[in-house]
Amino acid sequence: MLNQIAANVAHHPHERAVAEITAHLRSFWAPSMRADLVTYVDGGGSDLTPLAAAAAEQFRLREVKP
Rank of each mutant, 00 (worst) to 15 (best):
H24S: 09
A56C: 08
P31T: 01
E15W: 05
E20L: 15
G45C: 04
L48P: 04
N3C: 05
G43D: 13
F59K: 05
A35Q: 13
G45N: 01
T22G: 04
D36A: 12
F28R: 08
R60Y: 13
A7V: 01
L25Y: 08
D36E: 11
F28C: 01
A6R: 04
W29V: 08
A35R: 12
A53E: 02
T39A: 10
A53L: 07
H24R: 13
Q4C: 05
G43I: 06
A35K: 07
Q4W: 07
G45P: 00
L51D: 03
R34I: 02
L48N: 07
Q58F: 00
A52H: 07
L25C: 10
G44P: 12
A55W: 02
R60D: 05
A6I: 00
D47E: 14
N3Y: 13
M1H: 13
F28D: 03
A6W: 02
H12L: 15
L2M: 10
I21M: 11
A6M: 09
R62A: 14
H24F: 13
L48S: 04
V38F: 07
R60Q: 15
H24N: 03
A54L: 03
A54C: 07
A10S: 12
H11P: 00
V38R: 06
I5Y: 08
T22K: 04
I5V: 13
H24C: 09
P13K: 15
H14A: 06
S46H: 15
N8P: 00
D36I: 07
L25D: 03
T49H: 06
A53Q: 06
P50L: 00
A54N: 04
A19F: 11
K65M: 13
G44N: 12
R16K: 13
T49Q: 08
E57T: 06
G43P: 09
A53R: 03
E57D: 08
V9F: 15
A54V: 00
R16F: 06
Y40V: 09
S46E: 13
V38A: 07
N3P: 12
M33W: 15
I21Q: 03
H12A: 10
Y40P: 00
E20H: 14
L48W: 07
M33H: 14
R60A: 14
E57F: 04
L61P: 09
G43T: 08
D36P: 00
H11W: 15
G44A: 09
R34N: 08
A19G: 06
E63A: 14
A19R: 12
L2S: 01
M1F: 14
S32D: 12
K65Y: 15
E15V: 01
Q4N: 12
R16E: 11
P31G: 09
L48Y: 08
H12N: 15
R34F: 10
H12S: 09
D42Y: 07
H12V: 07
K65Q: 12
L51C: 03
N8K: 08
S32I: 03
D36G: 05
W29D: 06
V41Q: 06
R34S: 05
P31R: 08
Q58P: 02
L48T: 02
F59N: 05
A54Y: 01
T39L: 07
L48K: 07
L37T: 00
L25Q: 03
